[in-house]
Simulated assay, not measured.
Amino acid sequence: MKKLLIFFLCAGIISTASAQKEVSAKTIFDAIDKGQTVNYDGVTITGTLDLTELSNKKRIKQSKGYDEYKSTVEVPVSFKNCTFKDDFIAYKNNEDKRGDRNWSISMGDGETYTTDFEKSVVFENCIFEGKSEFKYSDFAEKASFAGTKFGKEANFKYADFKRESNFANCNFNEYANFKYSNFKYDADFYSVAFRDYADFKYANFNERVTFKGASFNQHADFKYAEFKDSGNFDNTKFKGGIDMKYSNGKKYMN
């Protein structure tokens, strides 16, 4: 009986420890919404984390049939060695459409929701198994996604990085969308694996950016990109071709 009791006690401890490794998206959302700093290491986040619905959400644009809303993450967020099982949403668009499978027309009605980050943002050595939507997001402080794996499309279109940004050793399994993104300070894409289309069309690199040792398995699009300081492409592999047409600035390739 004593051995059996010890077994169940140990099983209970193991079960509790395992449960503590899993955190709901709602728990994280509520903490951010209350202005609490978020810091997780080695946990699995379950459920869709939608940061476009914070209580500080404001309507910033309104026109006939269209509204735009902005939420702001006002606290530092840090996720290291974490897995996001579902979608991470800092951008979404609800457009009113009419029609059936064979015919559809946009009625011009819709709502766009975006999210800005006022403090530092860390997603290091994480895994995004679902979508990662950061379209139109402003990152006011340093943003680090170093070592992170993006299982589905990574959407940073029109994102504005106002401080240093780090994507070193990232793995983009699907479309990496940095079209029209703005990097005000140094940007690091060292040894990144782009397995699908990498879109940096119209991207603006105000200071140094490195793609040294990176690998582009599909097309690399830098058309119209601005390299105002320098772009390092030493030992970079372009397996699907590269388009630098109309790009400006200093670019170093070896």
Rank of each mutant, 00 (worst) to 15 (best):
M1H: 10
K2F: 13
L5E: 12
F8Y: 12
F8N: 07
L9E: 09
S15Y: 15
A19E: 09
K21Q: 12
A25M: 04
K26S: 11
F29G: 00
D30V: 08
I32D: 05
I32E: 03
D33P: 10
G35W: 11
Q36D: 13
T37Y: 05
V43D: 06
V43C: 07
T44M: 11
D50P: 03
T52R: 04
E53W: 06
N56K: 05
K58C: 03
K58P: 04
I60S: 04
K64N: 14
Y69V: 02
E74H: 02
P76V: 11
P76G: 08
V77D: 03
S78H: 10
S78A: 15
F79P: 03
K80E: 14
N81W: 07
C82Y: 04
C82D: 07
T83P: 05
T83R: 08
D86S: 06
F88C: 09
F88T: 07
K92A: 03
N93R: 15
K97M: 12
I105A: 12
I105H: 09
E111Y: 10
E111L: 06
V121M: 09
V121D: 10
V122N: 14
V122Y: 14
F123L: 08
N125R: 14
C126V: 12
I127P: 00
G130N: 02
E133L: 13
Y136G: 00
D138E: 14
E141I: 02
E141V: 04
K142F: 15
K142H: 14
A143H: 08
F145G: 08
K149L: 07
K149M: 03
K152E: 11
A154D: 01
F156G: 01
A159P: 01
A159W: 01
F167T: 04
F167C: 02
F167R: 04
N171I: 10
E174F: 02
Y175F: 14
N177V: 02
F178P: 03
S181F: 05
S181N: 04
N182Y: 12
F183C: 02
Y185K: 11
A187R: 00
S191M: 11
V192I: 09
F194K: 09
F194M: 09
D199H: 15
F200R: 01
Y202G: 00
A203S: 15
N204T: 00
N206T: 02
E207N: 10
K212I: 02
A214V: 01
S215A: 07
F216A: 01
Q218F: 03
A220Y: 00
K223L: 04
Y224I: 04
F227H: 03
K228P: 01
D229E: 14
S230D: 08
F233T: 00
K237H: 08
F238M: 06
G241R: 05
I242Q: 05
K245S: 15
S247H: 06
N248E: 14
K251I: 15
Y252H: 09
M253V: 12
